[in-house]
Design a protein around this nucleic acid. Sequence first.
DNA 1: TGCACCTACTCAACTTTTTGAATAGGTGAG
DNA 2: CTCACCTATTCAAAAAGTTGAGTAGGTGCA
Lengths: 192, 192
Amino acid sequence: MALRNAVMAALLEGEASGYDLAKGFDATVANFWTATPQQLYRELERMAAEGLVTARVVEQERRPDKRLFSLTPAGRDAVRAYTAEPPARPPVVRDELLVKVQCADAGDLDAVRAAVAGRMEWATAKLARYERIRQRLLAGRSEEAYFAEAERVGPYLTLLRGMSFERENLRWGELALRRLEQRSAFHRQQSE
Amino acid sequence: MALRNAVMAALLEGEASGYDLAKGFDATVANFWTATPQQLYRELERMAAEGLVTARVVEQERRPDKRLFSLTPAGRDAVRAYTAEPPARPPVVRDELLVKVQCADAGDLDAVRAAVAGRMEWATAKLARYERIRQRLLAGRSEEAYFAEAERVGPYLTLLRGMSFERENLRWGELALRRLEQRSAFHRQQSE
DNA sequence: TGCACCTACTCAACTTTTTGAATAGGTGAG
DNA sequence: CTCACCTATTCAAAAAGTTGAGTAGGTGCA
């Protein structure tokens, strides 16, 4: 019942096929709620059965047909009801990288450093993608103008959170890399 | 096989019962890998069967006996092997609050603002807890001294990441609150 | 004395999520 | 022309995670 809310959030952006959603659907909701294709197709099926979404089959040339889903009025009501629901439970975090860092001292220091560096690279790429999306949303306007004019502010706000998250990954990664390097050097010294 | 790594990370801090781990085990690993008691008891059982941990029954007065688990040499080898494993997959994030914010414009604006405010309160409390743990780890030393002397830096580094995450929640929350308030006011105006 | 909640687990049933593969045509590179 | 990969989806099965209840004694408070 929780994936459902994420799917509705995604469909607020407009029609989408299961495949669109699986690919990350415009890189918005996918950033704070991930799901596999399977989950999405199944959930969309259920939601259609319950009348929250309708499917419109679009026949395509040179491509398999696709079913574009969109929110029904009942679906929009469900969005409203969902946002008014009792406080969201604390986020589920599951970050392997941090588990590795926690084990760093008892593990393979160099491999952990490489993992941190990898994450930083990833964060840099993601940040660039976010920035492109931001520019598209702003459409030339200043942030102030955007907030004054845009019909929706939700997607922009979540985008900002995503960006600050990745920036923190970079900031922290640099620090962690430096400290792990220090530790590596210390170990090398000791074994001499 | 992934929960297992988090359990090993926790056991690097020393012996723990399933119950200890379930409670959050010193608020370290639990911050980037959550699990229910059931999962932990089951996983510990499996790990014991595979020789990664050993259990030591401690009889207690006025309290049920407990089984304290600790890493075996094979468990320590597994930690080493784990940290050297191929790059960690990107973190699984699943934050209902952001889904709600994404839906804010189509949903109940006031409820969403309340949810953001709730998260901020939670972040403040968490930050305070983190700070206490940090002081305990530092044990009066400066950070520089800590990194030079401490036998393990992993737990401190992950703690720093947790702290920066919560600080970002606060920073972003303030901004989001302001913008959502703006929007609320705008809607009130329009309906007059 | 009763109630609520804490320690310390275990069992069973359930739901959710992940993984792997199958189908079926289309596109692009060498 | 072949190979790899893209669109678009479905099926089946395994792994992971959640929920609820049960046991059994202990503490704290009014």
